[in-house]
Amino acid sequence: MSPTSVAPLDVWAEPRRSRPMTLLSRVGTLCLVELEKLRHDRSELLTRSIQPVLWLLIFGTTFSRIRAIPSGGVPYLDFLAPGIIAQSALFVAIFYGIQIIWERDAGVLAKLLVTPTPRAALVTGKAFAAGVRASVQAVVVTVVAVLMGVSIIPNPLRWLGVIVVVVLAAAFFACLSVIIAGLVLKRDRLMGIGQAITMPLFFGSNALYPVDVMPGWVRAIAVVNPLSYEVSALRGLLLGTPTNLWLDLGVLAGAAGVAIAVASALLGRLAR
């Protein structure tokens, strides 16, 4: 995040508003900031799309020919596409804590923390700003998947549900990144930990293969991995495969809520 992309500090200082209104105002402001950043740097969308597109082109088409992975009666490329959408959102959000550390080093975070804005509002705003970025990335990957022949249900309400799912999951992973930042306090340490956990999160989910074919210990990881519930929800919405959508949404919303609370508690440690 460049210095010019940070909202003026007087925007955050509105003590007369109620806490719910303050929270909504901060979330909306940070989401607008994120969209403004994307408008000024569209090339980032292209560069971030390369990896998920390669997964679809190489891994998806190859394993579709091999037919080594059961996909529940749908073509494997269709089965894989929601997993790659979830992966792209994960990779966008998991390093979001770096922005918090940058703001700490630039003195912006300390100024934000002395305003009347609740810490939970700041963290929630950052989390859902990551959700906006992840949603744009998900749209790009979805368009590529459709061009490759993935059969997606043409229902705008389902697509709206996809955005909700991606935003909730990205909010959780962004807050997880902020939690790690609050513990390690250094950008290089955060980068190392982020790189170390992204692949286990991805491979320890149902993004590439169904839970039924996993070894028992991997299945246990998948059950507690929020990414699995994101992928299940995306498959249900985009492909119409059986899933408990309310359970998926409940797990994602609950995980995001807990992560926001923990990240809010650690935010002050970053500013010391």
Rank of each mutant, 00 (worst) to 15 (best):
M1V: 00
S2C: 03
V11A: 12
A13K: 08
P15T: 00
S18I: 00
R19G: 02
P20N: 04
P20Q: 00
L23R: 01
G28K: 06
T29C: 04
L30N: 13
C31L: 06
L35E: 13
D41M: 01
D41I: 00
E44H: 01
L45W: 10
T47N: 06
P52H: 00
V53D: 00
L54C: 09
L56S: 03
L56C: 06
L57C: 12
I58N: 12
F59C: 03
I69K: 06
Y76N: 02
A81W: 13
A81M: 15
G83I: 05
A86E: 12
A89V: 03
F91M: 06
A93H: 14
F95P: 04
I100Y: 10
R104E: 15
D105L: 03
L109Y: 08
L109W: 08
A110D: 15
K111E: 15
P116C: 03
P118I: 00
A121M: 10
A121C: 14
A121F: 15
V123F: 07
G125N: 02
A127I: 10
G131E: 04
V132L: 10
V132Y: 08
A134N: 10
A138L: 11
T142I: 00
A145T: 03
V146L: 13
R158N: 14
G161P: 07
I163P: 02
V164Q: 01
V164R: 00
V166Q: 05
A170N: 11
A170F: 14
F173N: 02
A174E: 06
A174C: 12
A174S: 15
C175L: 01
V178H: 02
V178K: 00
I179W: 09
I179D: 09
A181N: 06
G182M: 03
D188Q: 05
I193V: 07
G194R: 06
Q195P: 05
A196N: 10
I197F: 04
T198G: 05
M199T: 07
F202E: 07
P210F: 01
V211E: 15
D212K: 05
D212W: 11
M214N: 05
G216F: 11
W217L: 02
R219L: 02
R219M: 12
A220H: 08
I221T: 07
V224W: 10
P226V: 00
E230H: 06
E230Q: 13
E230D: 14
V231C: 14
R235G: 04
G240W: 08
T241E: 00
T243P: 03
L245M: 13
L249W: 12
G250W: 12
V251S: 06
L252V: 01
G254T: 05
G257E: 04
G257S: 15
I260C: 08
V262E: 13
S264V: 07
A265S: 09
L267H: 05
